[in-house]
């Protein structure tokens, strides 16, 4: 598969070689004590944004830097490492990867010596699907992917408390956005890193979603006390509104699609469904909704069907 990825890259480089400035311009912003955010743009992957659509955070502790999510490419990872080195002399000692999606783990390639931690099922997911995600990223963001290969997390974490350099980090093993979603709550600063469980002002993505499980995870987060919420996509928040917004979207999605399936609409007929204003206003609408139709409608329409009778096979 490595040769395939390299082959794709060569083709892409030939097609796009002239004048591409491959700098993400990663700028840390202090959002809490010791805590810096590298905020991604609220867009879909493109050659303009190089895949930098994800929020990456760095906690500078007395025992080294803890990074939460690693960005979409080897280049991103390298530029992240350089940006952190400008912030502090402390080395990166730990990376937490919240889920299997490529923009969250591919940048960890730039941190081969660092403990790269995630939940067990996420490691399985990256092993199974990582190559395919990576090829797809080459197609979508092109030259920004140069030299990017899947680097597996090398440390499996369990839910519970870990203490790193004076920061007490609670790890929560949730699910629903993907089969395993790692959430980190820094009790020392009250910062909640929700990973993909919470989206803010952006339509949530559903390629690996289980909506019932997702709802339960959102309820868990809603019961937590925090001072600052860092979603994986979209602006940070001092209140619970992004949690409610994410739940509102997946509720709308499921009700609309199961309603359409119960009325006998074809999958292509629901692609252009008009969402209410509050949903239509989210970033990456309606493209994200159209993707969700592909993910969710087949199962919902099957639920509306019944076995035929008098079958002759």
């Amino acid at each position: 598969m490595r040769t395939t990825a390299a082959g794709v890259l060569i083709l892409l480089m030939c097609a796009t070689a002239p004048a591409v400035d491959l700098h993400y311009g990663l700028t840390p912003r202090l959002i809490a004590e010791d805590t810096y955010l590298f905020e991604g743009v609220n867009e879909d992957f493109s050659r303009d944004n190089g895949g930098n659509i994800v929020n990456v955070a760095a906690i500078v502790t007395q025992a080294g830097v803890v990074v939460i999510n690693a960005g979409p490419s080897r280049l991103y990872g390298e530029q992240l490492r350089a940006a952190i080195a400008r912030l502090t002399d402390q080395p990166v000692v730990r990376i937490f990867i919240s889920k299997l999606h490529p923009d969250h783990f591919l940048g960890s390639q730039a941190f081969p010596q660092v403990t790269r931690s995630t939940l067990a099922e996420t490691i399985t997911g990256i092993s199974d699907q990582g190559e395919q995600f990576t090829l797809n990223m080459y197609r979508m963001v092109g030259p920004w992917m140069i030299g990017t290969e899947v680097t597996l997390p090398n440390d499996t974490v369990q839910p519970g408390m870990v203490e790193i350099g004076g920061h007490r980090l609670e790890l929560l093993a949730l699910a629903g956005h993907t089969p395993s979603d790692l959430v980190v709550l820094d009790h020392s600063t009250g910062t909640l890193f929700t990973g993909g469980v919470v989206f803010h002002n952006r339509a949530p993505t559903t390629p690996h979603a289980d909506l019932a499980g997702w709802r339960a995870s959102l309820e868990t987060l809603d019961r937590l006390e925090f001072r600052l919420l860092v979603p994986s996509h979209g602006p940070v928040s001092r209140d619970h509104r992004p949690i409610a917004q994410t739940r509102d979207y997946i509720d709308w999605l499921e009700e609309s699609l199961s309603g359409a399936a119960a009325e006998g609409l074809d999958m292509a007929e629901v692609l252009n469904m008009k969402p209410p204003e509050r949903i239509a206003a989210l970033a990456v609408m309606p493209a994200e909704y159209q993707r969700s139709v592909s993910h969710l409608y087949p199962a919902l329409e099957r639920a509306a069907f019944r076995p035929a009778t008098e079958q002759v096979q």
């Binding site: 074809d266 692609l271 159209q290 087949p298």
Partner: peptide, 16 residues
């Protein structure tokens, strides 16, 4: 011809 702008699942593109 109704179809998505982009094929999310190349094995099953919905068309009406």
């Amino acid at each position: 011809v109704l179809a998505p702008t982009s094929a999310e699942d190349s094995m099953a593109v919905p068309v009406f």
